[in-house]
Design a protein around this nucleic acid. Structure first.
Lengths: 213, 213
DNA sequence: AGGCCCAGATGACGCCCCGTCACGATTTCA
DNA sequence: TGAAATCGTGACGGGGCGTCATCTGGGCCT
């Protein structure tokens, strides 16, 4: 053996790759998240257990609790993840928008596209009838709601639109988008355009403005 | 003591009161339901256990399972109970209605009144943030949805209104009513009139028709 | 009234899942 | 290289779940 010891040389391009500890940590966290998505998809939320999730990763049961406190927390992390990925799309629509109508149309369209895409990674083999607790108000989801609320306020003000009860209005819009979005996913083929058109007209003009099929 | 023994005489008005067996059965079922309502109110749905419920009744744990299969089933029974009590109110509104607008107004108003009344018996001491699985599609709740759907179809046809995508439309209306109703309950004082007015205008005319506060 | 029968109340039991913790392996740092 | 820190591990106690053998008392007959 050379008596010149080997030391990893860090060149000018500093190797800022985290150490092994850190790498396995993020890998484990991600593995648990992936396993959880799969298990929730196959067994449904209620039936899934922490051990079902951790078993799929090959890790020990105790390890799960180094990353998440409970099944609920993992689920919330998945939900947060979705919300976190959606937020930039929403922001883009806000920046593109020139008035309330264009913002609404863009945002609904973005949401429905997002829904359709996510749909694939979830509905693998879900027991019929079970409903995921979509409504969980995780921090990131709440942030999305707040952002919608704020965007509505700004855009409506810019339009010199008459003041409305924003709390009710934003809630109603989100409700319409959610429900029509859900129904959209149940139809074959999935018609994002049609559903988005419906939701936008519903919000902008109510019953008289709806498309006639 | 008189030597003329006392025998309860069953007159022509036959005593068809059920026997003691049957009476304790309905009493137990009701006791479990009441206890469940209280426990769900105090601990929230997730934290509540079958034993919390049965303990409050003084019955043995096994007895619970003579009446309901699980915590879920008891919760669904409570939800069904609410839906079953609401259905006649909805039907009354349908019979009173002369056109779509009057039906919608009556139905929304009835629902919000119902919500405000039920509110009392539930929000006793609920842990903040937890959301009940309102969305559970129990048979009775599904029946209410179907009835709204059917009523919409009949009333709109009677109005000679242009055909719309009833599935989307009914879902959107229910979503608006639910969400605005929820928000209504969070405000002090609870303003049923204002909330109903908002929801009805939202559905009938969308954003431009909303009241300006 | 007395006796038989069975619906249904009872609670102990075994099962499974939960969350913890003491231990050991591996990485990091001096 | 050795000490210290970090984190994976799986056994364990705790507790809720749903069942079942047993017991109790109401219904019904003679």
């Amino acid at each position: 053996m050379s008596n010149i010891a080997y030391f990893p040389v860090r060149g000018p391009a500093e190797d800022n790759r985290p150490g092994k500890r850190e790498r396995t940590k993020v890998a484990n966290r991600q593995a648990i998240l992936d396993a959880a998505r799969a298990v929730f998809g196959e067994l449904g939320y209620e039936a899934a257990t922490v051990r079902d999730i951790i078993r799929r990763t090959g890790l020990a049961s105790g390890t799960f609790y180094n990353y998440y406190k409970s099944k609920e927390e993992v689920f919330d992390a998945l939900a947060d993840d979705g919300a976190r990925r959606f937020r930039p799309l929403l922001r883009t629509e806000f920046e593109k928008a020139v008035d309330f109508e264009s913002f609404l149309r863009g945002a609904v369209r973005a949401y429905f596209d997002f829904l359709a895409a996510e749909h694939e990674s979830w509905r693998i083999n879900r027991p019929a009838g079970e409903v995921f607790p979509h409504a969980r108000a995780t921090p990131e989801i709440q942030a999305v709601f707040d952002e919608v609320h704020a965007a509505f306020a700004k855009v409506l003000e810019h339009d010199h639109a008459p003041a409305v009860d924003l709390d009710y209005f934003a809630a109603a819009c989100i409700a319409v988008a959610r429900e029509v979005g859900d129904k959209m996913l149940e139809r074959r083929p999935v018609d994002v355009d049609g559903a988005a058109d419906f939701a936008v007209r519903m919000i902008l003009g109510g019953l008289p403005a709806l498309p006639r099929p």
